[in-house]
Amino acid sequence: MPITAELIRGHTETIILAHLLTRDSYGYEINKSIQERSAGRYELKEATLYGAFRRLEEAGCIQSYWGDEQTGARRRYYRVTPAGREAFARSRAEWLETRGLIDLLLGIEGGGTV
């Protein structure tokens, strides 16, 4: 469903922040978790993922560091900063408000309650 994908794309940064709030993580792990949580219906392209990392890092929402893996290639990990937590809380509240409003406008049961 390309329209759904388009709609989700606007929330890529918030989705990444949500994952990083549970623990520090790296690209593939985040993408795998997105895939699993969406039951295989949504997956980010690598380029989209790194673009979002870069924007988040420039905005001071996350910090990256290279792990010291004993086997295989080293991984680039990301950790969320206090500013990132704030940004996530804001985006989450915005989404809940938007969802409530759209539910109301579309006449969906339970719309408008946050």
């Binding site: 790296y26 593939y28 993408n31 795998k32 790194y50 991984r75 680039r76």
Partner: peptide, 13 residues
């Protein structure tokens, strides 16, 4: 760094 990150993630996948 992007190249190394991409390589690592692609190999793991």
């Amino acid at each position: 760094e992007i190249r190394e990150e991409l390589l690592g993630n692609m190999n793991e996948k």
